[in-house]
Each structure stands twice: as structure tokens, then as C-alpha cells.
Simulated scan of single mutants.
Amino acid sequence: MQTDIEIYLLSCPTDKIISWLEGEFNVIEKKQPTAVCTKLTFEYQQADIKVTILEQAAGKRFTSVWFDSDKTPWEDDMACARQAFSSLNCEVRCNYQGWEEAGEQDPDQWWRINQQGEGPFIWT
């Protein structure tokens, strides 16, 4: 289980992302501290999961969705990315191997899911 989950969505409106999360979970708090940042808290199996949605996180077209918890329903970033793609039908990117403090993974190695399929690629 990862300590947190983060995915990047290409050209996906924040309202659509929020609707996806509201359809999957019981959202108990929603606030928008800035024009490009929305923070949610939802409940999952008696745990409060904090989510930050940040527009223009990787260039102008990508939105980051960061789940700050190890209690999410997904085993890793890739499982979350697959569900997001299935629900939102927009390109999703995530770290290929998950993040580890002492890991030796290539920071440019990513996983991409889109209408053409899914697989690893170098995001530079």
C-alpha cells in the first residue's frame, strides 16, 4: 500500500473530477483556497481522505489529483489511474513505480492511459 496516490489528468475539467469523486465517495468537505486549487475530504471505510485537485500542475493542460492518505481504495497510483480513466475518459498519467523515499526509480518514467491503450513512457 502506498502512503499516498497521485494522478495527472489531461484536459479534464475540475468539476468533472469532483463529480467522479462525489459519485464514488461520501464527500464531507469541499473548499477552494485558490482559483486553481480545490480541496476535498471524503470518507472511506471510517477514514477521512484528504484530496487536493490542482489545475495547471504539469503544464497548462494537466490537473493533479493527490490523495493524501494510505487508506484509499487503490493499491497504487496505477490502480487509481485506471479507475479515473474508466470513469472520466480522459488521458491519465501517474508515476510508473510509485514513490519511495530511498527508491532507485527513474523520475521520468511514467505510466499513461488513454484511448489508444496504456503503457510506460518518458514524460520530459
Rank of each mutant, 00 (worst) to 15 (best):
S64G: 09
V65R: 02
V65C: 11
W66E: 08
W66K: 10
F67W: 09
F67P: 11
F67G: 08
D68S: 15
D68R: 11
D68M: 13
D68V: 13
S69L: 14
S69P: 14
S69R: 12
D70Q: 15
K71I: 06
K71S: 14
K71M: 15
K71V: 10
T72L: 05
T72E: 11
T72S: 15
P73S: 14
P73L: 10
P73T: 11
W74T: 08
W74R: 04
E75F: 09
E75Q: 15
E75I: 10
D76H: 12
D76C: 12
D76T: 03
D76R: 05
D76I: 02
D76Y: 04
D77C: 10
D77I: 00
M78N: 14
M78I: 15
M78P: 02
A79M: 13
A79Y: 05
A79F: 06
A79P: 01
C80T: 04
C80I: 05
C80M: 13
C80P: 05
A81Q: 08
A81D: 15
R82H: 12
R82N: 11
Q83D: 13
A84E: 04
F85S: 06
F85H: 07
S86L: 07
S87H: 05
S87Y: 02
S87E: 12
L88R: 03
N89T: 12
E91P: 02
E91K: 00
V92I: 15
V92A: 07
R93F: 01
R93K: 09
R93A: 15
R93E: 14
R93H: 07
C94G: 02
C94T: 00
C94A: 08
C94D: 05
N95Y: 10
N95A: 10
Y96R: 02
Y96K: 05
Y96D: 07
Y96N: 07
Q97I: 01
Q97T: 00
Q97E: 08
G98L: 03
E100G: 06
E100V: 03
E101Q: 11
E101T: 08
A102H: 13
G103H: 00
G103L: 02
E104A: 10
E104R: 06
E104V: 09
E104I: 09
Q105S: 11
D106C: 07
D106R: 01
D106H: 01
D106P: 04
P107H: 06
P107V: 07
D108H: 09
D108F: 13
D108G: 07
Q109F: 07
Q109R: 08
W110L: 12
W110P: 03
W111F: 10
W111N: 04
W111Y: 11
R112G: 12
R112C: 12
R112P: 03
R112K: 11
I113C: 03
I113Y: 00
I113R: 01
I113M: 04
I113L: 07
